[in-house]
Design a protein around this nucleic acid. Structure first.
Length: 299
DNA sequence: CGCCAGGCTAGCG
DNA sequence: CGCTAGCATGGC
């Protein structure tokens, strides 16, 4: 086993690991303490396994501890986007009450850089579904179709490969609670297994990249935006989900246009342009959790 | 019971 | 093209 500690004092804007991993961006991390998703109590280990590498991370104040089956500090820095300059990004946020409140409540929350296949499947599963259930569905996929990776005497299961999900039957996927998304997951997994690489969208500019991703079954404009933002590094992407749409209605009515693309352009401009996706993620998390019965640290 | 959840697809006009 | 019915499932 390898291990190490990352000094977060040297990371611009620091980190809030719990909010980063439990704000509906990434769904392949599992809390080792068994508490439900969204609890966000600090000090627990989170674990995942990706491409045969098992990783655990835990934050203690300004220290980020990691353990892994291989040397993994560059990977951890990459997955959590520790190179993003949060103070600079916050300066690009509009001076809006809700957004400034969100920034203060979740200071240190970062956009993730997920591996593209888990991100793609997670957000295909996300349609008309609550965040905690999306996470539960991914854990079920991992438990059923993921390969074992050993770490420090325990076993961590890896996110399933495209081939593993392509070979699953629709009935098996429905049994895990995927509902009508089951055939979409199967079909998209088969496309990726056959060599159609979703990350090829990186070669395009933002709007064409969004259209490119909709060739996968179960991927429309909104899911494509999530993959661009949470995996492929398009920080300007603003997924227009139900929460953000109602926020536009109430707070930015002049950004309500005819059609997804036009509304997207208007709200991206309003939320600061190149880093609008950061503002969107802070706003989404704030709106979605502010009325929840808060037992955690934030909110 | 009805309504909603990080919407999408197929099939229509 | 744009528009919409239908779609699974669980929680409140």
């Amino acid at each position: 086993m390898k291990r190490g500690t990352i000094d977060l004092e040297a990371v611009p804007g620091g980190l809030d690991l719990a909010h980063t991993l439990e704000s509906g961006q990434t769904y392949h991390w599992r809390r080792v303490d068994g508490e439900p998703y969204g609890t966000r109590s600090s000090g627990t280990w989170y674990e995942t396994a990706l491409d045969g590498v098992a990783i655990q991370v835990k934050q203690e104040g300004s220290q980020l501890h990691w353990r892994a089956s291989e040397p993994a500090e560059p990977l951890v820095r990459d997955l959590l986007r520790l190179d993003d300059d949060l103070p600079y990004i916050f300066e690009t946020f509009p001076d809006d009450p809700a957004l400034q409140a969100a920034r203060k409540a979740f200071d240190g929350m970062r956009i993730v850089r997920d591996p593209v296949f888990p991100c793609l499947i997670s957000f295909i599963c996300s349609t008309q579904m609550r965040v905690r259930r999306i996470h539960g569905m991914q854990l079920a996929l991992i438990e059923t179709f993921g390969r074992r990776v050993s770490l420090n005497g325990t076993t961590v299961r890896s996110y399933p490969t495209p081939g593993a999900l392509a070979e699953a039957s629709e009935a098996e996927l429905r049994d895990l609670g995927l509902g009508y998304r089951a055939p979409y997951v199967r079909e998209t997994a088969a496309m990726v297994a056959d060599g159609d690489d979703p990350s090829s969208a990186c070669e395009l500019s933002y709007e064409p990249a969004r259209e490119e991703l909709t060739r996968f079954q179960g991927v429309g404009e909104k899911v494509a935006d999530c993959v661009l933002l949470f995996s492929l590094g398009f920080l300007e992407a603003v997924p227009l989900d139900t929460w953000i749409r109602s926020a536009i209605e109430e707070r930015y009515p002049d950004c309500e246009k005819d059609g997804y693309a036009a509304t997207s352009r208007a709200i991206r401009r309003r939320l600061g342009g190149p880093h609008a996706g950061y503002a969107q993620t802070y706003l989404f998390h704030y709106l979605r959790t502010r009325n929840a019965t808060s037992t955690g640290t934030g909110g």
